[in-house]
Simulated assay, not measured.
Amino acid sequence: MIDDIYAQAVLAVAVLTVAFAFWKGDEPERLGAAAYAMAFLATSMIRGDATPNVPRWGMMGIEIVLLVVFIGLALHSRRAWPVWAASFQALVVTNHVLIAASLRPPVVAAATVINMSNYGLLVALAVGTFWAWQERRAAAMSSTGRL
């Protein structure tokens, strides 16, 4: 899984984004980061032999759980990033559903959808964390009278 420099770079970005969310984020960002990290670890453990265009029910289940977490965050949070994260995760789940429905998308297209959706999800998490951090700093400055 992490056998080339590109995969290692993407993993480093994911780890930095999750660490940033834990360090500077509020509760929704931390919950989203924890869910993403747990899903990443779980899918890494069950990856095994990846036969193209064959339903991988375990991975599909994990991706659906992650989608439910982001939908829950979107419904219970006043922030916009969980909506974007849920949208990107919905693309990943849709990709798994297409494979399970025997529609057989091209392997490269399926991999591209999953990879690009994960990048989008990480960007949404990072931007949401940044804005939560900035809102908290602005609130702290206004309460102390330092504007």
Rank of each mutant, 00 (worst) to 15 (best):
D49Q: 09
T51V: 15
L11F: 00
L66G: 01
D4F: 09
L66C: 05
E29A: 15
A39Q: 09
V68W: 14
T43Q: 14
V13E: 06
A42P: 07
A12D: 00
R30L: 03
I62G: 03
L41V: 07
A12G: 02
A14G: 08
H76K: 14
F70I: 02
Q8V: 06
A50C: 15
M59F: 14
V65E: 08
F40A: 04
L75W: 13
I5K: 14
G48R: 09
W81M: 04
I71F: 06
M60R: 13
G72F: 04
A80H: 14
A21K: 02
D4T: 07
V83Q: 08
G72C: 10
V65R: 04
V65I: 09
T43I: 10
I64Q: 12
W81E: 07
R47G: 06
P28V: 06
L66A: 06
F40E: 06
L66P: 01
V83F: 12
A14L: 05
I5E: 15
I64P: 00
L67F: 15
L41S: 09
W57G: 01
I71L: 11
M59C: 12
L31G: 03
W84C: 10
R79M: 05
L11T: 00
M59D: 12
P52C: 04
A50Y: 15
L67H: 09
V18F: 00
V15T: 06
A19L: 09
I71M: 13
I62C: 12
R79G: 06
W84R: 03
V54D: 01
R30F: 08
A74R: 02
D49P: 07
T51L: 14
G32R: 02
A74P: 08
A42S: 14
W23P: 00
I46R: 05
A39P: 02
G61F: 11
V13I: 13
L75V: 13
V13F: 03
G72E: 07
I64W: 10
P55Q: 08
P55F: 05
L73K: 03
L66E: 04
S44E: 08
L75F: 10
G61M: 11
V18Y: 01
L66W: 03
P82C: 07
R78E: 12
R78P: 03
S77N: 03
L31S: 08
M59I: 12
A42V: 08
L16D: 00
G58V: 09
W23E: 01
D26C: 10
A33D: 02
I64E: 10
V13A: 14
I5G: 05
P82I: 00
R56T: 06
I71K: 00
T51I: 14
P82A: 11
M60L: 14
D4W: 06
E29K: 00
A12H: 00
H76Y: 12
T43E: 12
R78H: 11
A12Y: 01
E29P: 03
H76L: 13
M38D: 07
L11D: 03
M38E: 11
Y6V: 14
R30W: 07
I62E: 07
A21P: 06
R30C: 08
S77F: 01
A37I: 00
W81S: 02
I5N: 13
E63L: 11
S77C: 01
L41A: 08
I46H: 05
T51P: 10
P82H: 07
V13W: 01
G48V: 08
A74M: 04
P82D: 11
V13R: 02
G58K: 10
M60F: 12
V68H: 11
